[in-house]
Design a protein around this nucleic acid. Structure first.
Ligand SMILES: [Mn+2]
Ligand SMILES: [Mn+2]
Ligand SMILES: [Mn+2]
Ligand SMILES: [Mn+2]
Lengths: 225, 225
DNA sequence: ATATATATTTAGATGCATCTAAACGACGGT
DNA sequence: ACCGTCGTTTAGATGCATCTAAATATATAT
């Protein structure tokens, strides 16, 4: 039996492996989970002894296939819960993450199955992250670009926002932005200011938000020319 | 901050106080929670130091008003979750208890509120137990009698079944019995056999089930004469 | 009243997750 | 090649929840 805490470490390492190439350093994990480096070392030894990570001293860690499966399972729980909270309990997308973090370790397989069924087997969560299927194959993460890299005139669709920064999500929610929202860059001033048009309305976004919001090009009307 | 385990002790003591007059003995709690007596003693010292129980050495413990409030809060979570699982996730009443036990410590006040709203502020859970209101006043437990104490011909309504005995609940669920089911005692043989009529059908119940199923007299057609 | 049985508490240990302080390894800059 | 910095690990401690074994208090029975 794995503890909640072990599950959180595995999930975190999985998430960090999508951002940086492994091995993932002790201090990276420590910062991500808000614990001290010795705590990470100690946990890493335990996870290694259970065959869930590979570890090279002074270098960092990497998930084994078993560790990855555990991580994907926890992430499936997390994202199904987030979807449920948003669609059935009327949560906004900035409110779902913390609740899902607490519950993800405590639902049974039965609950997971019934939740997925009730939700109609969704494939993306409220932040645009892919929901692993019941076979726990690691899901594809679609290629995206950040809004801040785009120039005036670009027509884009919101693809994903990080679920961990509540402030930014709150800001975006209030501005009516969510995955699927179509927008066009109106003004990208060199410093700070970022203005986009959504449904004909001008929306001002702080640079910090524009630098983390992930987008993809709006689907062309013309598919093949 | 109270741990899950402390919450479970307080909830258990609350439940035991409905059955026996306090003080509740160390061994009673130990058996109820399936831990050893020294573990209970040690936990009791901790809860006492926090003002959640009163304790007399070698005698037993009793909830303080603060301890009772915590217990009632956890029980509200538990019973709302059980109701949700039964009505929205298609669980049978013998399946809800364990899932609710795991989740009850991990939902936020926000979640509790939204769940209650979604369910329409229910007042009883799937086993017929009262759901405490949001003010956390300890709920009334209606007076009931056990089925086994009744004689042939008595017309009864099922009031409550203990949520902890999965086998008995499973048996009753398969027999179509749940809170509100009307039945009439057909045969109460001196040893073992117990037969009731439900919707014109004869249903045989093991004595062990008849000794724990709680019932009340069927409402008379005539109210006031 | 005394002895015996039973329940409870004390003592001491374990594993978990965490911390701080101290030791140590890796690695880039001179 | 050496040094110093920075990150990592080791050492040792704490609080939690639990256990077993031993000591002790209470209740019961003669
Ligand atoms: Mn999340
Ligand atoms: Mn978590
Ligand atoms: Mn229950
Ligand atoms: Mn519980």
């Amino acid at each position: 039996m794995l503890s909640d805490v072990m599950e959180d470490y595995l999930k975190s390492i999985y998430n960090l492996e999508r951002e940086h190439e492994p091995p993932i350093a002790t201090s990276t994990i420590a910062e991500y989970l808000d614990v001290t480096p010795p705590t990470v070392t100690s946990m890493a030894e335990k996870l290694e002894s259970r065959g869930l990570i590979e570890r090279e001293k002074y270098a960092g860690v990497e998930l084994t296939p078993d560790g990855e499966t555990v991580a994907v399972e926890v992430i499936r729980h997390h994202r199904l819960l987030e979807s449920f909270l948003a669609t059935h309990l009327d949560y906004d997308w900035d409110e779902v993450h913390d609740e899902a973090d607490a519950l993800e370790h405590h639902i049974s397989e039965e609950f997971e199955d019934r939740l997925a069924e009730k939700l109609g087997d969704p494939t993306v969560d409220p932040h645009g992250d892919p929901i692993p299927n019941a076979d726990l194959e690691p899901p594809e993460h679609p290629d995206t670009e950040v809004l801040a890299d785009h120039a005036e005139g670009d027509a884009l669709v919101v693809a994903r926002a990080s679920d961990r920064n509540t402030d930014e999500l709150r800001y975006l929610a209030d501005a009516g932005v969510q995955p699927g929202t179509e927008l066009t860059v109106t003004e990208h001033a060199p410093i700070g200011l970022f203005v986009v048009e959504i449904d004909g309305e001008a929306v001002h976004l702080p640079e910090r938000v524009a630098e983390t919001l992930e987008v993809r090009p709006a689907a062309d009307e013309v598919t093949d020319a």
